[in-house]
Design a protein around this nucleic acid. Sequence first.
DNA 1: CAAGAGATCATCT
DNA 2: GATGATCTCTTGA
Length: 199
Amino acid sequence: MISHQKLKISFYQQPTFEIAKNLLGKFLIHRSCGIKNIGKIVETEVYYGLDDLASHASRGKTKRTKIMFGPPSRAYIYLVYGIYHCFNIVTEKTNFPAAILIRALEPISPTIANYSENIHKIDSKPASGPGKLCNYLKINKSLNGVSLLGNVLYIEDRGVEILENNIVATKRIGINYAKHCINYNWRFYIKNNNFVSKI
DNA sequence: CAAGAGATCATCT
DNA sequence: GATGATCTCTTGA
C-alpha cells in the first residue's frame, strides 16, 4: 500500500512560490456525499501581495478578499463570470494577501469517470481549467474558507515527485487587465502533461 | 484551426 | 452600473 499522507500545516507555511511548485503531483480530494472526488494537480498559478494587479487583493481587504489576508491552509473560492467557481489555497502569514489558484487536474476518480456536466457528454479532459475542475470535484462557494487540514477538502502526498526541470513557468492566463503584472511567470505546470489547461 | 460572442451574477465603484 | 483569475459554441477561412 502506497502511503497517502495528508499535507500538514508545515506544507502551507512554506513560501508561496515553493508551495505552488510543490503542489504539482499532489492529489486534491473532496469528500462529498460519501464519495471521494480526486484529481492530481498538474497546473497552478500564484497571486501574490498587494502590488500584484492581477490579484483580487490588489484593491485591498474587502468582504470577498479578507480570506486572502488570513492565515495559510484555507480555501479561497469565488465565482467568476457569474458561472464558474475557482478554487485557491491561501498562503503566507496573516495580513499578507496571497493565494494559489489550482488551474488543472489529471482526473483520478473512477466513480465519475470523464463525464462533464457542462457539455453532457464524455470529456477526455474534464478537470483541465479552473472552472472545470470545480465542477469535477463538486466544489462550490459553500466551501469558501474551509481549512485544508480537515476531512472534507484536503491534499495528499502519494509519493509522486515532480523535479524542478520538469516544471514549466509561464505567464498567467486571463489577466490582460493587470498591466505590467501580465509578464510575471507565475504560472507553473508539469512539463508534457496532457491535462494542462493551455500550452 | 482561430477568433468572437454569449452566458450570468456577486462584487465593487 | 460595470466587470471579470471561464468555458463552450458558432462562424469562417
